[in-house]
Write a protein that binds this DNA or RNA. Structure first.
Length: 485
RNA sequence: GGAGGCGUAGCUCAGUUGGCAGAGCAGCGGACUCUUAAUCCGCGGGUCCAGGGUUCGAGCCCCUGCGCCUCUACCA
């Protein structure tokens, strides 16, 4: 017994724990070792249910999540990660001693059982237990069975309790897992190779964000956790891997909120010999495929707020949307007129905001968040996106789209810039004010010739939020970042 | 970083105008061999987030700190 832990625990908890320790000792004396080893089962609970046949003998293992004692018989529910299954324990079938020992079990204990299948009078499939064994004694109480665990802090810090007691939470994460499997399967079907590129980088490039810094002692140098894999994936395009993707974590040193976690999952896709329109077809197929396979529908939610993913999705240029919102003559107005108009619409803008800055604020605050149904916003101003190719017919814009769904940017895609000279100029002009250095090795790679390509980044957590109807990113990340205790 | 809200039993939550700290679930004892939020009888359980202040008296009012939530800021 670990006295230290008992003493450190709050008074109330230790009483519950002491009671369970006592039950554990009584079980030990009755010949039930409190922490058992492997237990051979005839299948997981979902499999046992699928192959249900009255009077068939089965062996199952799981956690007791409820126990209903009725004198000389007991009903309990066993939970194993695939299903919940009722078990029935009778004094007659089990014998005096094994039945008495069973009564010492607590909610939360892990047990292995063997018995025969039957259907109760109420019609529930049940295992009548003939033998049982203790697999792990639970020393701490589970959250309340009816209301579940509500305390948000505890839900994230002790996600295992959240998963045990809140079925809908389990369901969201199972859906997330299936979504990611379907993304991989879809991309494999189109000939893409999944690759892994450095998470620790000497320069954090491919996006504009503050990186996390760490120390590499062997080289006596600072390293950065990547903010994007983009520049390495493009090196692979140069190297002849002409359809690649990476589905993994990025790290950005930013605040925490409903839609931001400092480490988040990004899908970046690059395909040679296509362009932004190829990416458009790709993402529309990818998302509708995933929704259809995982959810079985393209309509999410009900009524006015329902999200309809049925293609084709709306497409509108950035300029059209801005004019629609602020008037057709917006781009003819002076900077001062635009500033005044934007402020009248409630935007908080600095006196020296640039024309592009004002317009972009209008886009982000007044337009983007109103775009509920899937919308490709195209032809963004070149200044905003240094890694994209300029439009052939207008050098002020680049060949890109941002896919916006439910007011959130889900996937930006570009026709990638493969001119090393222009790429250098645009990175240098952007690096000016920022501490971010230009990645020379990336530029060297481009000088060897990168095929024309379309590229895209998909915020996987946000996509999962959309498809699961989750309000917050931390509801789709198993262990979201929290302030240290 | 700024503004607002919240913090009470293991869990979910009440707590009136400042006047003895409450319920349900869980736990313990008892009854009960088809229950499923089992039921019935009885019992125990509190650093009211922490520290300070006002008051005869603080869970409640004031101040400071901590944690969480929402909005906001930062964020290709």
């Amino acid at each position: 017994m670990n006295d230290q832990q008992t003493e450190d625990a709050p008074q109330g908890v230790s009483e519950y724990r002491a009671q369970r320790m006592l039950n554990m000792e009584k079980l030990r004396e009755a010949g039930y070792a409190p922490f058992g080893g492997a237990f051979h089962t005839t299948g997981r609970l979902s499999e046992i249910r699928a192959a249900f046949e009255e009077d068939a003998g089965v062996r199952a293992a799981g956690r007791l999540v409820t126990i209903r004692k009725m004198g000389k018989s007991i009903f309990a529910d066993l939970h194993d990660g695939t299903d919940r299954f009722q078990i029935f324990v009778q004094k007659n079938t089990l014998g005096e001693e094994a039945f008495a020992a069973f009564k010492l079990l607590d909610v939360g204990d892990l047990v292995g059982v063997a018995g025969e299948l039957f259907v109760t009078r109420m019609g529930e499939q049940t295992i009548r237990i003939e033998e049982w064994t203790l697999l792990a004694k639970s020393l701490l109480p589970l959250p309340e069975k009816w209301h579940g665990l509500k305390d948000v802090d505890a839900r994230y810090r002790q996600r295992y309790l959240d998963l045990i007691s809140n079925e809908d939470v389990r369901e969201v994460f199972l859906t997330r897992i299936r979504i990611i499997e379907e993304i991989r399967s879809f991309l494999k079907g189109r000939g893409f190779l999944e690759v892994e590129t450095p998470m620790m980088q000497q320069q954090a490039g491919g996006a504009a964000a503050r990186p996390f810094v760490t120390r590499y002692h062997a080289l006596d140098t600072d390293m950065y956790l990547r903010i994007a894999p983009e520049l390495y994936l493009k090196r692979l395009l140069v190297g002849g891997f002409d359809r690649v993707y990476e589905l993994n974590r990025n790290f950005r040193n930013e605040g925490l909120d409903r839609t931001h976690n400092p480490e988040f999952t990004m899908l970046e896709i690059y395909q040679a010999y296509t362009d932004v329109s190829g990416m458009r077809e790709l993402i529309e197929c990818l998302i509708t495929h995933v929704a259809q396979e995982v959810l079985g529908t393209l309509v999410i939610g009900e009524g006015e707020d329902a999200l309809d993913l049925t293609p084709p999705w709306r497409s509108a240029t950035y300029r059209e949307l801005v004019c629609e919102e602020m008037g057709a003559d917006w781009y003819d107005q002076s900077r001062e007129t635009r500033l005044t108009a934007a402020r009248e619409r409630g935007l908080d803008l600095a006196e020296d905001s640039s024309e592009i800055g004002i317009t972009h604020e209008v886009y982000e605050k007044l337009i983007e968040r109103k775009l509920v149904q899937p919308t490709f916003v195209t032809r963004l101003p070149a200044e905003l996106i240094p890694l994209a190719r300029r439009s052939d017919d207008d050098e002020r814009t680049v060949d890109v789209f941002e896919l916006v769904i439910k007011g959130q940017e889900i996937a930006p895609a570009y026709t990638e810039l493969n001119d090393p000279l222009e790429q250098r100029a645009r990175l240098e002009s952007q690096a000016g004010d920022d501490a971010q250095a230009v990645d020379e090795e990336f530029l060297t790679a481009l000088e060897h010739g990168m095929p024309p390509a379309g590229g895209m980044g998909v915020g996987v957590d946000r996509l999962v939020m959309l498809l699961t109807g989750s309000e917050a990113i931390r509801d789709v990340i198993l262990f979201p970042q929290l302030k240290p205790r």
